[in-house]
């Protein structure tokens, strides 16, 4: 149990996918102007991450034992088709949610956090439950980072900043400070 908790907290805070592993930076920098869209994108990513971790476990256990060199290709194909499938499913089941997610849903395919999750959890040799917990932690961590960033950007949008620094440069510096703050979580578990 404590092992699962550790995996969860580690993926959520200490080894946050965005701020410690630099995964999923494209949406992190691209879709963080507004708080509500950032939150929705985070949830959509969480959803795809959970499904991906289940698929990755199945692939690893039943198919890739025989052909480990196909790992990368099969992962990327599975992720792309999963996103496509999830898109169709959501469109059928809940058109309202589909409209809310909009363009972000197909874009999740090229989010390196998803492929990173599959590869990391394979490298760490996680089982089914552990992989699932890892995916939930990572997805929530991604959402957390995205929401924090969007909040900071909304606040700083009206700040009197020199024209030169506005845009990506400032966002990266904000992200750096955020990442520094997250480094503080590294001491969270070392005592126990």
């Amino acid at each position: 149990m404590s092992n699962l908790l550790w995996i969860f907290v580690s993926a959520l805070l200490i080894n946050n996918f965005v701020l410690a592993y630099f995964l999923g930076l494209c949406p992190f920098l691209g879709v963080s102007q507004r708080l509500d869209t950032a939150f929705r994108l985070g949830l959509a990513t969480l959803f795809v991450m959970i499904i991906t971790s289940i698929c990755a476990w199945f692939l690893n256990t039943f198919i890739l034992v025989h052909a480990p060199y196909l790992r990368l290709i099969s992962f990327i194909v599975v992720i792309a088709s999963t996103v496509q499938f999830v898109e169709m499913l959501i469109r059928k089941l809940s058109p309202a949610l589909f409209r809310a997610l909009g363009i972000f849903l197909p874009l999740i395919t090229t989010n390196c956090a998803i492929l990173g999750l599959a590869i990391f959890s394979t490298n760490k040799g996680y089982g089914f439950i552990e992989g699932l917990v890892y995916a939930i932690g990572a997805g929530l961590g991604f959402t957390l980072a995205l929401v924090l960033m969007a909040g900071l950007r909304e606040e700083s949008a009206l700040a009197p900043v020199p024209q030169l620094i506005k845009g990506t440069a400032m966002n990266l510096i904000i992200a750096g400070i955020l990442s520094m703050a997250f480094m503080g979580f590294a001491g969270l578990f070392s005592a126990s």
Binding site: F22, L164, T168, L172, G176
Partner: peptide, 15 residues
């Protein structure tokens, strides 16, 4: 060399 340094360095280089 830690993660924050990456963000800060790239931010300053872009600047």
């Amino acid at each position: 060399v830690l993660p924050p340094g990456g963000f800060l360095t790239l931010g300053l280089l872009l600047l």
